[in-house]
Structures are given as structure tokens and as C-alpha cells.
Design a protein around this nucleic acid. Structure first.
Lengths: 259, 259
DNA sequence: AATGGTATATTGGTAATACAATTTAATAAT
DNA sequence: ATTATTAAATTGTATTACCAATATACCATT
């Protein structure tokens, strides 16, 4: 399903009638069989695949190639492997981890700048907020309110420490994505976060006004979402993201000057 | 860099100060070393890594685990492996392939519907068009015009065949993403395409009006982009995407009725 | 001269076996 | 009841050998 599969191949550039006549490795066959079995639901999350030796029997191969295949499946995020008695290969729920890593490579090697990532994030979160404004239910709104209340409590107890607020901020954005009712937005958002995390929060200036600003922004967004005003939600969110990105950029310059 | 790396670890849920003290497998070390070497530019695209036997010497390990590591790197899209004399592991340029696959798994296992994918695509392409309207250069516009001209030529020569137009359509969208001047949009767009390809085009009704509609839509978008009207470009593009998605959905229902 | 075949050395691909390390569960000892 | 020990299953690693693919250089045929 993933690699050039003769069966489902799309005749895009059908100019050339031939494709590379590469002979498939064993592990390709093993991989696609196991993948298919998982996709077909023959193995569900939590299920244990047969032991390596048994799989060797089944596929009529030796442990070398088989372990290579298992390693690839592990990398794809489909299984996790535990050693020891009652260990083995267990089917796991897919996460955004692999997608994040792939995106990370693209960022690194394609030379995508943080500015580009921030721009993408602004669009993404803007759209997320707009959707949330249309679809958020009462419980979603309450959840957002609770998060803001939590943030306020923190800031009252300790008006100078930004760090405890950052995870709350993160949860706010993710809750919003959840309220948007499209899991794809949430997944992509998480992927973006996992890749800009290190930069964004690290360089925000640790000042009281930042905390106030953050809470104010979030609350305005919440209000727009609650009012069902999707355009306002989008606009507020985009401005918020851009604003905080600018703050982080400036903070980074400051730090670079006097480390 | 990918897996739990003590160095760059982010204190997200800094509630738990400790991370699982799992004894790292050999291949983790091997992986991170090779990955780092590639990231650091010690090996560039096209370069050949040492042969398996030599790598075994370097890492003081046997071929089994080493090959597992190479297989994982291959899966990550960092290297390709060729057999035979003068073969070996060659560093390759990263593509969107892995990200596409990861997204594909998320779609399959998280039960993300095609409707959700289409919604995401509409947002993405809308944003892309809006950006392109702001940033497209003369050469970009000319490229878009050339594609439309090509499409028109096809439709004149053969007014009934939609299929030759679909690749042109695809190129149009990708060119637009290129003109948007943010490689991230292009990468994500490609990722989405690679995952909805099979569905979208397959079920479009093969009627003459569809061809006319397609060309008309593209040209209107091109005009908005050329005029620098980003809001119009976004709106036109979003409507276009939704429209064609609806057509494909209806076509699918038709085909399901009478196969 | 051009083409096609063939040897060869290099390198990845597979197999088989043995042992080490890890982990859980059952058991024994305190 | 708690703790230490043992046993069994399973992955992790090492070694060795051989098979298969392939770029190169050389040779043969036309």
C-alpha cells in the first residue's frame, strides 16, 4: 500500500510504458502482508503478533530479514517490540509521531525556515478557530473556559512565571482543534507543534505583560468561538499566532546578543 | 534526533522528571549517529555510505543489527540501498513520501473520512491561493497561463476526455503552491494529493461540462492571483475544491449503484 | 567499429546456529 | 506478606557461510 504497488499503481506519467523491473526483497512481501493484516483488522491494537521464530516459519524465511521487516514496521509506528518472556511485537495505535518526524526532515533538508512554519501555523490555527466557531458544543466551550480559568489562577498565584502557562496554552489550541470536529486538523496541528515547540516557547520573554497578553488573546478567541463568529475567530487567532511568533523572534535576537 | 534524545528533550509534561531508563538497542545508537552525520552534512545527497562490512567494523557490531538500522534509515527516506558491485547505501533527497504514508495511516486508523480530508484540502488550497495572489511573480503567472492553454488545447482536440486534463490540473495546483513561496504548503499539499488521488479523480463524471467547468475555474483563480486579490483567490479556490469534491462524491454514488 | 556476451570482483540478501540479555510468572525463602 | 530465586520464553547480538545482483573491464562476434 505504501511503496510502488503494481496493483494500485497510478498511470501518472504513462509516457514511459515500463517501470524499473526491480526484484522485490523478501521484506517487501513480509511488510505488505503484515501491514495488510493490520489494516484489515486481523490484528487490532494491543494484539501480539506471533514470535519471530513463528513468523519465520510462516514466511519461510530466516530471522535476519524478518527482523528487518519488524524494525521497519516499528519505525512506521505500527508495532512496538518488547523483549523478554511474554514479549514480542504488539500492534500499537498510530500517532502523529512519524508524520512529525517526516515533516522535521523536510524542514531540515528542504531548508524550510521557521518563518515559513509560523506562517503555515497561522493559517492552520486560523482555519481551526473558524471551524471551531461553527461547530463547538457547549462542553467544548466549557473546556476552553476551564483552561483559561486555570491560566488565570496560575497567573494570580505567581504573576511572573510564564512556563506553567505554556502547557495550558498548548492544551487550549489542541482543544480548539478538537472542537473543530476534523481530526485531520488536530493531527497536523500536533505535527506542527512537535516541530516548532523547541523554538517558540523557549524565546518568549519572561515578562508579566506577556502573560496578560496571552490570557487576553485566548479569552477573546474563546469569546468569538462561543459567539459562533468564525471570521472573528480566524482573524483573532491569526493575529495571536503572528504576534507571539514575533515576540519569540525578538526574544531570540535578544538572547543571541547576550547569552 | 527522532527518538527520545536526552539532549534535545523538551520538558513538556515536566511533571515526571524521569524518562523510561530503557536500555537503548544498538541500532538506536547507529541510527542517531548516521542521521546526525547526514544532518550535519558530512554525507550529502548522492554520497555513498561505507559498505555494510565496513560499517560493522566502525560500529563494532554484526551485520544483523546494522542491516536493521539501514532498513530503518531507508524507511525514513534518508538512504536508498542498491545491491551489487559499486552498490551500497546512498544518501537521498528527502521527499514527501514518508509523510504521505504516515498521513495515510492516520487516515486509515483514526477513521478520518474523505469528507474531512476534502475539508482540509479546501482550507489548504484556499490559503495557498491567497498567498500566491500576494507573492506570485510574472513567471509564475505565465506558468499558470501556459498550463491553462495546454488544458484548452487538449479539450479542443478531444472535448470528451477528462483524463489528460487531470495531470494538468494537478500541476496547476502545485504550481500555485510553488508561487505561494512557502515550501511547507507545497509539501503538505503533495502529501494530501498522494492520499486522495485515488478517490478524487476516479469518480469524476466523464462529461464535457466537467471539462469546461474545470478550465473555467482554473482561469478564474489565475485571474484573481494575477490581480493580486488574495481574498478572491481564496474564495474561488475553496469553492472550486468543494465543488469538484461534491461532483466526485456524486459520481461515486452513481458508480456504486451500477457497477 | 559496434554490438553483444562473459568473467570477475564487490556488495547487498539470505540462511543457519549459537549464545547473551531481558522480562514475566511461578516458586521458594524469609 | 514480602522478598529473593528460579525457570521459561522471547528478543537482541554475534558468527559464519553462501547466494544473488551488478558495475566494470575484457573478450568475441558480426
Amino acid at each position: 500500500m505504501t511503496t510502488p504497488d503494481p496493483g494500485t499503481e497510478v498511470p501518472e506519467a504513462s509516457a514511459g510504458a515500463f517501470r524499473k523491473a526491480r526484484r522485490t526483497r523478501f521484506i517487501h512481501d513480509i511488510l505488505s502482508q503484515i501491514e495488510q493484516a493490520i489494516i484489515d483488522g486481523k490484528y487490532r491494537v494491543g494484539d501480539k503478533l506471533p514470535s519471530e521464530r513463528q513468523l519465520c516459519e510462516l514466511f519461510q524465511t530466516s530471522r535476519g530479514p524478518l527482523r528487518e521487516a519488524l524494525r521497519v514496521l516499528e519505525q512506521k509506528g505500527l508495532i512496538t517490540i518488547k523483549a523478554g518472556a511474554y514479549g514480542g511485537a504488539f500492534v500499537t495505535a498510530v500517532t502523529t509521531e512519524q508524520m512529525s518526524e517526516s515533516l522535521g526532515f523536510l524542514l531540515k533538508f528542504k531548508g524550510v525556515s521557521l518563518a515559513e512554519l509560523a506562517e503555515f501555523r497561522a493559517f492552520l490555527e486560523g482555519a481551526t478557530a473558524a471551524l471551531a466557531a461553527k461547530r463547538a458544543r457547549k462542553t467544548d466551550i466549557e473546556h476552553l473556559k476551564a483552561l483559561i480559568a486555570e491560566a488565570r489562577a496560575h497567573s494570580k498565584r505567581d504573576p511572573r512565571h510564564l512556563d506553567p502557562l505554556l502547557p495550558i496554552d498548548s492544551r487550549f489550541h489542541k482543544s480548539l482543534a478538537q472542537a473543530a470536529g476534523n481530526r485531520l486538523f488536530l493531527s497536523v496541528l500536533q505535527t506542527v507543534y512537535e516541530n516548532m515547540y523547541q523554538y517558540q516557547d523557549k524565546y518568549l520573554p519572561r515578562e508579566e505583560r506577556i502573560i496578560k497578553l496571552l490570557i487576553k488573546d485566548l479569552n477573546e478567541i474563546r469569546a468569538a468561538v462561543e459567539a459562533g463568529d468564525s471570521e472573528a475567530a480566524r482573524s483573532l487567532m491569526q493575529r495571536h499566532v503572528h504576534k507571539f511568533n514575533r515576540l519569540a523572534e525578538e526574544g531570540q535576537k535578544q538572547k543571541d546578543k547576550a547569552p
